[in-house]
Design a protein around this nucleic acid. Structure first.
Lengths: 365, 365
DNA sequence: GTCGATAGCTAAACCGCTTTAGTAATACGG
DNA sequence: CCGTATTACTAAAGCGGTTTAGCTATCGAC
């Protein structure tokens, strides 16, 4: 159906080689021949099969994004969408296409093996992930987003620990002492030894550090960590359950590891008739586009999702280009985050039970 | 680097053919040989090159989504994200990957030519689009989303005209007589003869019909159609400009052809200090996830974006499977829409200038 | 007039796989 | 014991390109 190089060659009365030259290196043939060949190419609307071409050139013109979840799930999180958009920026620039690679048979590894691309980008894959070993062994250029800065991977990320510290500090400074942390779910498709995501762990560490400054910890009364799926529903469910918990005093603040989860918390508050931030302060992480226009606008950690994607893609392309150059040095890119205080966080209502104490001044630094 | 079938064959002391059989049709070889081959396959972590395989099998396990805009732009609209998620559902089911194909050198056609996929899905491509001719000529299975129901294409869509009618009717019934329509931008990468998108035209037609029932038209005073880019910023800009317009009375309602644009209108109102729906009613189209949680919740036309994507993908797969069967009949799938009345629309304030009239009862049907 | 370049083209190998056609060996029916 | 299936395997062709090596004709230089 689709014309092949042979068809063109025959029609033009030349060899396949000549057609190939016309397309790839016109200087090697005469102008007349070039014109003749190209007119047929245009007439038949011929485009060399990228598949066949790849067989020899090893270049496909496609970047792959290894997703930790099925496409449907992954794109529920606007933060992921932002990353994809960032990668898209570079794709446009370099005329690359982008292939989304969901786990195959439940394994990211399978998807990576079958991947049909020049280079790969992963989200949330740590250096111990089985996929890293495979890709390094096969020398497939790849860059991790939100992975870790080790020799095994080229990574683009942020200072999760520091950002989390800042966020928790903000809440503590406001006077909150009973705060619930909505943590990212342990990623089911990770390897056993990496049960919790790196990002989660680093943020937990940051939260802990801030708490420690007030002699608090994750185990202190009033502080709790509950897992929530990265979606509105996930946040809603987690907070609704929290609010329904009887016996203990309710938290005065909720901090989510993803804005989308924080917005789920909004939903739960609405149902429970709780005012934000009057009854409950809510903070998020990511600063997705919605965060600003939410009601109330969400206090969160701004994370440059688009830039992350773009930076990762740029690095992959760099790896792609500099494969032979000894250039292939391990690189890490750490992008900036910042605390964006909006209207969803405020000082807690004075606690009738323990007034005076809850209102403690800001801690020693 | 990556082992080839030859490596496996040599190590196992068999021919390439035998290895191929082991992988694709074990029944054709003895159990012992199978085991021997597979142990080497496992040992070397061998996976057949999808590229090479494709050359002969003509199947590469990927669906392509032809985007009318660069990835970054396209994914700004959550409605598009929903469609992608829908396609993702089917991809997960059939273990396919999804390739996003932004225009190449400004042309969708170029992207289609180079596409590296088994089947394609397009968004907003009409039967007259150059790409349709190409794909039909090449017999590449493809399905259009929001295209048109003609013989040239297999399409998945909704009754845009009817939905638009219902939406406008809702506003008119509330008593609005001065309404601004925020229309989709003419798509720059379309062919000249198809300057405006089909969807836009059909919705405009629906609006017109509703207006006509009250002896109004798009040209009537108070009614206006302004183009807006499909993004929050686009809606914000368009409505801000509208509000800044001096001389004419302001519209009492704004109806956008995309929720994301309607949310931009929210933004413009906030800046202008206008209350929704008190000062201005706002309605959208699509019912993206945000619409419900926006403040106020947005009145809109619910469109099953996910289902559209899933249905389109299902049709492509069907085409893929039934290529030989004379099965390849032209199909059209029209999904349901429904008007979702939320809190962003209400009766306009009584017009001091023309009271009594503006409050006319609902029109004769 | 011969030789070496150079320009312009092509045959053939190759990329890594599938598939067709065929071979050799064993099993089976009469 | 012969002819025919059946089983287990392989050689080779082919998919659609690129690339290497080589061939032929023309041309300029000595």
């Amino acid at each position: 159906m689709r014309p092949t190089i042979k068809d063109i060659a025959e029609r033009a009365g030349v060899s396949k080689t000549t057609v190939s030259f016309a397309l790839n290196d016109p200087s090697r043939i005469s102008v007349e021949t070039y014109n003749r060949v190209m007119s047929i190419v245009t007439e038949l609307d011929y485009v060399p099969s990228p598949v066949a071409r790849t067989l020899t050139t090893k270049r496909l013109g496609a970047l792959g994004l290894l997703l930790p979840q099925p496409i449907t799930e992954a794109l529920r999180n606007p933060y992921v969408v932002e990353i994809v958009r960032g990668i898209g920026e570079l794709c446009a620039e370099r005329e690359l296409s982008l292939t989304m690679l969901p786990p195959l048979r439940g394994r990211v590894l399978e998807a990576a093996r079958r991947a049909f691309v020049d280079g790969l980008i992963t989200i949330g894959v740590g250096p111990d992930h089985e996929v890293v070993e495979l890709l390094n062994r096969r020398r497939i250029p790849f860059v991790t987003i939100d992975g870790a800065d080790t020799d095994a991977t080229v990574n683009v990320g942020v200072d999760d620990e520091g950002a989390a510290y800042g966020l928790m500090r903000h809440l503590l400074d406001l006077g909150h002492r009973r705060v619930a942390i909505l943590a990212l779910m342990p990623d089911t498709i990770k390897l056993p030894e990496e049960r919790f995501s790196l990002v989660r762990d680093r943020r937990i560490a940051g939260f802990s550090r801030a708490l420690a400054e007030l002699s608090l910890s994750l185990e202190s009364p009033g502080i709790c960590v509950v897992p929530a799926e990265s979606s509105i529903e996930g946040g809603d469910a987690a907070v609704s359950a929290l609010l329904a918990r009887s016996g203990e005093p309710l938290p005065t603040a909720v901090v989510a590891m993803a804005d989308i989860v924080a917005l789920g918390a909004y939903e739960a508050c609405r149902k429970a008739g709780l005012a934000i931030p009057g009854d409950l302060s809510v903070a998020g992480f990511d600063d997705i586009p919605l965060a600003e226009s939410a009601n109330p606008p969400l206090t969160t950690i701004h994370q440059p999702g688009r830039k992350k994607g773009a930076a990762a893609a740029a690095l992959v392309v760099e790896l792609l280009d500099g494969v032979d150059a000894e250039h292939r040095r391990v690189l890490h890119r750490c992008l900036e985050t910042r605390l964006v205080v909006r209207a969803s966080t405020a000082a807690p209502r004075p606690d009738p039970a323990a007034s005076g104490l809850a209102r403690a001044s800001s801690p020693a630094s």
